[in-house]
Write a protein that binds this DNA or RNA. Structure first.
Length: 765
DNA sequence: ACCAATAGATTTTTT
DNA sequence: ATCTATTGGT
């Protein structure tokens, strides 16, 4: 026990050894949050206050859950696999599997990922002849997910206009379809669980009695539904330890509600709020800058990071004339850092939006610097893997129409659009699944589809005694997916991925502790299951016991495929520069960090100005970016940038102005004010940001887009000018020459005007 | 059934 | 500029 608490600072120590009451830990960046969380669990167990089965720890990502398990295993000789440590969705899935009957779900219910959900909505729109221009599928999906996050079923959605009425109706059809198919989407995993616990008192009380400690990581990222779930699991007795950092809340756009932190303190009568402000990551200049920047936000719980490390290097700021030059400058700096002994994988190149990676990649590639881009397609999202999974899904649950549609004609087996339509019509008429509708079909479509159904049934029959990896292998053969891709020109990678799916299945079996020879299609003890579940109904079978008896390896693997889509990294190489968005960098740290594209309109992003508190969220994002760096931090922006095939002229980001002078060093001379800066008043608040300081213009000469054009009279793009009537503005575009010369000028007060330079009286400022 | 052309949209992302 | 999804033609 002594060594568990050894080396903790006073705040960490206090957090780890808190009494069994609910508490909020405000954990700053790099303050040892994960360490506190895992040590707290270990300490609770080691001091005998709780058994491993009596606590639950919730995270957002599988990566975080795995790390917690790994660290815990290193601290205590316990089996962490059986513990309730997992993601919100993973743990809800566990509860729903165990209590599928109470939740009105089939035992083999399957999970729709975002792609599947979108295609399901598209299908519904088409089938009901709803104009998808008026109701874009993405909007419908957003509507459905938001409703679910508010805990609303279709019938409960409050509608006030024809549009929302129609949306609610689509939601209703979608709900029915999912239920009939035996599928649930991500939000549904949460909502179903919340409804199950809310309506089933014995079940609720069972889990409330079981979990005496609940620990929640990244609490600032919870949405309303997730918070409700925590409340239901906790009841009035459990001690909930919420760990989070309101300054790192960057997911409001997907429903995260920082307000949950305040609600938590109130509703759980939190007596203890502990701040972890000692930072173990960054040098002083970096940390001071981060503190200064974030102090510009108004809605904060309040926190200031400190470090024992020295000031270290100042932050370098570079102004480049173009995005290409910015990238070129980075290449030089990177070479320099490498010479200083910093390894490439300890250097992160961060950007606000993915589109920015292209220019950087190009420069790195030309300079022969190996790099790795995060955020590509993940393993289980690849088309060929989705196809293989669809076959497996049909074997486990043939009524999954999404899976059926994906592969009924892939590889092609002569089922045309006509046949598919007839099948869908028939299914709709009878209110049954596509699979079940096949026997109703006559003619050519009937026979080809019949053959497909037979294929699925034969695969099922043939593989019923096979262990999972062999089943997967066999299905790849029977489906002819492998042969199909072998005959395709560019199919080699896909064949390789499909073969990797077999390995993934083998790995899964061993990691989940299934017997190596357990038949994939069968639950371990299906007979016992009926006896227990169909008991008098009063007895609660705990999820652990239920799952041990009824989860088949295949069902478990399919859940795994949906809930854990695999690595987010495109290429794997040992020593490569790390390229990623600021969002994906959250939780990571590097010796050296470059934050690029620090321009108004890009970072902060122009769209953020329209959102409530959008600029504050962008600032938190910048805060996250800065606090990724251990020793060296480089910030850069470009005067011109290629975006959407057009050149944009941006001003430097307001965030650069919020960094204290003593922490930064400009590598490029700063021009007076800086040429695009709107008058001070326009900068002060969130709401006044109009996006006017950032605009788009066609290049005067497309072949010289990295040069800022200047005309003979000394007018140039970016020049500040003053007009007697319009006030001050900035030239954003010049056209023509001599007597026919016009300037496009963005005036701070009045917006864009086109003026003839020979007529208008303009003053250079 | 397959390919080419065209239209539309490009902030951030996990499950 | 580039990618995707859909459409229309062969």
């Amino acid at each position: 026990m002594q060594n568990l608490l050894h080396n903790l600072n006073p705040e960490q120590h206090a957090a780890v050894t808190l009494p069994a009451e609910s508490a909020l830990i405000l954990a700053g960046a790099g303050s040892g949050k994960t360490r506190v969380l895992t040590t707290r669990i270990a300490w609770l167990i080691q001091t005998g206050q709780i058994s491993p089965s009596g606590l639950m720890a919730v995270t957002f990502t599988n990566k975080a859950a795995k790390e917690m398990q790994a660290r815990l295993s290193a601290m205590l000789p316990i089996n962490t696999r059986s513990m309730w440590i997992g993601t919100f969705h993973g743990l809800c899935n566990r509860l729903l599997r165990a209590h599928h009957k109470d939740a009105s779900l089939p035992q083999t219910f399957q999970i729709l990922d975002s792609q599947d959900q979108l295609s399901m909505v598209k299908r519904i729109l088409k089938a009901n002849q709803i104009d998808d221009d008026k109701y874009p599928p993405r909007t419908v999906v957003y509507f459905i997910n938001s409703a679910k996050e508010q805990g609303l079923r279709a019938a409960k959605v409050v509608t006030h206009d024809p549009i929302s009425r129609q949306l609610a109706e689509i939601y209703g059809i979608y709900e029915q379809q999912c239920q009939r198919d035996g599928v649930v989407d991500f939000a549904e995993l949460l909502l179903r669980t919340v409804e199950l616990l809310a309506s089933n008192q014995p079940l609720r009380e069972h889990y409330q009695a079981r979990f005496k400690h609940i620990l929640v990581d990244e609490f600032q990222d919870t949405n309303d539904l997730q918070y409700r779930w925590i409340k239901l699991m906790a009841g009035s007795k459990a001690a909930v330890l919420a760990v989070g950092d309101d300054d790192q809340s960057i997911y409001a756009f997907r429903g995260a509600n920082v307000g949950n932190m305040a609600s938590f303190e109130r509703e759980f009568q939190v007596q203890n709020r502990i701040k972890l402000e000692q930072n173990y990551r960054s040098h002083g200049h970096i940390l001071d800058s981060a503190n200064a920047l974030i102090s510009n936000n108004t809605e904060r719980l309040g926190k200031n990071l400190r470090t024992d490390a020295g000031l270290g290097e100042v932050i370098r700021i570079q102004e480049a004339s173009s995005d290409r030059e910015e990238a070129q400058w980075m290449v030089e700096q990177i070479k320099d850092l490498t010479r200083q002994g910093i390894s490439s994988d300890q250097i992160a190149l961060l950007y606000r939006s993915n589109a920015q990676s292209r220019v950087i990649e190009h420069a790195l590639f030309s300079a022969n610097l190996p790099y790795r881009v995060y955020g590509g397609l993940r393993f289980f999202e690849r088309a060929e893997i989705k196809h293989a999974i669809a076959y497996l899904q049909l074997m486990d649950n043939p009524h999954n129409d999404s899976a059926f549609l994906r592969v009924m004609n892939f590889p092609t087996r002569g089922i045309g659009a006509k046949g598919q339509e007839t099948l869908q019509d028939t299914a709709r008429q009878h209110g049954i699944s596509l699979y079940a509708a096949v026997p109703y079909l006559a003619g050519k479509a009937g026979s080809t589809l019949g053959a497909f159904v037979k294929l699925i049934e034969a695969a099922r029959f043939e593989t019923q005694m096979l262990p999972l990896p062999e089943l997967v292998q066999r299905v790849l053969e029977l489906s002819t997916l492998i042969t199909h891709y072998q005959s395709e020109k560019e199919g080699a990678d896909r064949v390789e991925n499909l073969e990797q799916l077999v390995s993934a299945a083998a790995l899964f079996i061993s990691e989940e502790g299934f017997a190596n020879d357990a038949p994939a299609l069968m639950g371990p003890a299906s007979t016992v299951q009926t006896a227990l579940v169909q008991g008098d109904g009063m007895e609660i079978m705990d999820a652990d016991a239920a799952l041990a008896t009824l989860m088949s390896p295949l069902s478990a693997f399919l859940s795994h495929a949906s809930l854990e889509a695999g690595d987010n990294q495109a290429q794997v190489g040992q020593d490569a520069l790390q390229l990623m968005t600021v969002h994906s960098a959250k939780g990571l740290e590097f010796d050296a960090v470059f934050i690029t594209g620090l321009e108004e309109g890009l970072f902060p992003h122009e769209n953020s100005a329209k959102e409530t508190n959008g600029i504050e969220e962008e600032r938190r994002l910048m805060y996250v970016a800065i606090t990724r760096a251990r020793q060296r931090l480089f910030l850069s922006f470009a005067q011109t940038r290629m975006l959407h095939g057009q050149i944009r002229y941006n001003t430097k980001s307001r965030f650069l102005n919020e960094l204290p002078d003593e922490n930064v060093k400009w590598l490029t001379p700063q021009i007076k004010q800086n040429w695009f800066a709107p008058p001070k008043s326009a900068w002060d608040s969130d709401t006044s940001y109009s996006g006017n300081s950032s605009f788009q213009a066609k290049p005067v000469n497309p072949s010289h887009h990295s040069i800022i054009p200047t005309n003979a009279d000394g007018w140039r793009i970016g020049l500040s000018v003053k007009h007697a009537k319009f006030g001050e503005g900035i030239i954003i575009k010049l056209e023509g020459s001599g007597t026919n010369c016009r300037a496009h000028i963005q005036f701070y007060k009045l917006g864009l005007k086109v003026l003839d330079l020979n007529i208008a009286k303009l003053e250079k400022v």
